[in-house]
Design a protein around this nucleic acid. Sequence first.
DNA 1: GCAAGGTC
Length: 864
Amino acid sequence: MAPKVLMVAEKPSIAHSIATALSAGQMSSRRGSTEVHEFEAMFQGFKAHYKVTSVIGHVFSVDFPAAYQDWTATDPLTLFQAPVLKTESNPKAHIRKHLSQEARGCGHLVLWLDCDREGENICFEVIDCTGFHTTDDRKIYRARFSSVTEKDIKKAMNNLVAPNRDEALAVDARQEIDLKVGVAFTRFQTSYFQGKYGNLDSSVISYGPCQTPTLGFCVQRYLQINTFKPEKFWAVHPYIIHNGYELKLEWERIRLFDPDVAEMFRVLIVDDGLVEVTGISEKQETKVRPSGLNTVNLLKVASSSLGFGPQLAMQLAERLYTQGFISYPRTESTAYPSSFDYRGALEVLKNNSVFGSHVQTLLANGYVKPRSGTDVGDHPPITPMRSASEDMLGYDAWRVYQYVCQHFLGTLSPDCKYIRTKIDFSVAGESFYCSGQNVTVKGFTSLMPWLAVSEKSLPRLSKGEKIELTKVELYEGNTAPPDYLSESELISLMEKNGIGTDASIPVHINNISERNYVQVQAGRRLIPTALGVSLIRGYQCIDPDLCLPDIRSFIEKQITLVSKGQADYSLVVRHVLAQFQQKFSYFVKKIENMDSLFEAQFSPLSDSGRMLSKCGKCLRYMKYISSLPSRLFCGTCEEVYYVPQKGTIKLYKEITCPLDNFELLIFSMAGPDGKSFPLCPYCYNNPPFEGIDTLFGASKAGSTGKLGKGAGMPCFMCPHPTCRHSLIAQGVCACPECSGTLVLDPVSAPKWRLYCNMCNCLVFLPEGAHRITTTRERCVECESTILEVDFNKKTTPLKDGATLYTGCILCDDLLHSMIEMKHGKSFFKRTGGRGRGRGRGRGHSSRGRGGRKLQDPKMSFRDF
DNA sequence: GCAAGGTC
């Protein structure tokens, strides 16, 4: 039998390209966790059966073991010595299983992961999943390729090497350092400040070696603006008229900061009254065409010219890529590979309605060879792959595509050439000049008109000519501070300082904005919030290193030693962590220095209530004001949302309402029999469905107009058909006491119970079960919702220690024997005294599932 | 609830 070769790439598209190149397109593909392409071809002189598949980025990511996950029980300091675990990044993708299955029976493993440090690390993740290292006769190879072209793929195949463990270990080191440093500082800061202030406007006060310096850049500019002292300055501008054109002359001294001296010059010049042309020079200037487009440059243009943030720009670019309109959008390279088929790439756009004529000119007149640029060896620059029109892509994607085309054609177009003319003047011994420019070759600027050189013609003058002044202006101005940092400037700074990568730069910028450290304002400029400024100024007080970009380069430098085999992996990790641990201890000791800045900006918890849950409209935290009437206040929207009174209210696992995106809350009534139920603050105040006439806590008569305080629609009255928390999902059966429905109390473990959404009826379910949930099934006999019970292993009533059981609480003998009914405290005053009782008022409008017409459920609490 | 790095 032919030997089997397994080859693994970093993403499905590359696996496909490799298989296509090596099989000349003669492969069969099948679906799996990721696609597998199979074909027969030669391998090291033998006929072999190839299987080419891929992972989807990293297979694993690092985290702390469960024992360290509890914020309150873990001192963040101990995290520096804590063990770390690698867990599957995306367990649902089943990549580990996929690789181990595909590796079975394969004698050779060829690793086609991207040729960078992260790729090298993924190589070892793949090796780990395939179990290749266990048997000696199975061989592991690394393919080193500089582009995903047939030529490079075949070349790599003929020059297989071994994977580089040092490079992979460098990434392991970074992962552990980033995790421990980030999480330790984040937990400490968050707990400290959230325990003191009520209006921090962020659920987490995070710290990270990339996000914090990113914020640092924004705050640095903010402080520069805030501490800027404008200065008055003066400049003298003589004017002349030549052939009817007025010409303003610029001063060689530019400006002076002393008004008396400036005025003296003005008087001298006015007194003289004549300017002499002292020289005329012409110089040929070049504005060079762009080199190939990489991710960072695309993001900068998207932010500064298209108005798209990096996150959106990448989403649009990725969509264009998956639809085949542009090449892979995550690349650092600005140099095209030597084998790049420019003509072919141009042909693609030949008939494009917008660029076609330009392209035809380039094809007919010969295009210019692009500038060299830098080749990082990852992916070629971003180029168009298919012709498209705005109709095909939609406006936003079209604008990104349009830019990719303009830039690509720009790289193949001539440089822009222009002649710069400078005329020098002298008057009263002072030197002035004016300059103009005349474009001789538009070149690439005809495609990218916003970069065009503006034309400015100067009058024809000759040296020695003397001209009368028409007026002399003394301009008075103020020096001005720079503007807030633009997103595009920030991206440049991050790139220059090695903060983040092309793929993660958008994430870091998004992070500092989502945590409310900065706000993106007009023109995509980043304005730090009080929180962002307090943090950075705090670090500057305590330990400026913590927010300087060097913190990243320090880590990079250390792990580079590992990658080059110049330092031992575990020693480096220990050494770097020891330094950060010292910084951490010092930070904790000096936290009051930062706190004094917070004190000036934020109010103590007691004053302001506490941040509880996110508003679905602005996604900011709303404040919970516990004083009566208790309510939520969204400071951004200036909206108040009342919540049920006299009980405790908590965030419900950060679950959001599918209707309005507000985070759900769980309300627990006081007392031992206090029921708990989820509610959406928005729906509670603005019931979304018609026919919810009976609001919880409101008397029927009073519910027509405005809502009374504390009256509203909790999730157990909501007829939403698919939400997990609605009446439809959580309702079990009709209440035996009234026309209401018995609903599962979602947080009643371990004393699981049902309560009525109308009256005070309570039904206790089997005690001590690990979990009781409603299912989508209905009992065939009585139409009650079937419950799934996961019994405790020790107390399970099931045979052989089985724990899982499903059944109807009314018709299933086992479950029915285990339930018990009890009346609780009244939910609310009912005008009609006791409930109407079973058998009447059935068919309550909100009872039902999936739009099915409700019938009287034939259920019976026969033994109650 | 936490970092940063892949890719979707």
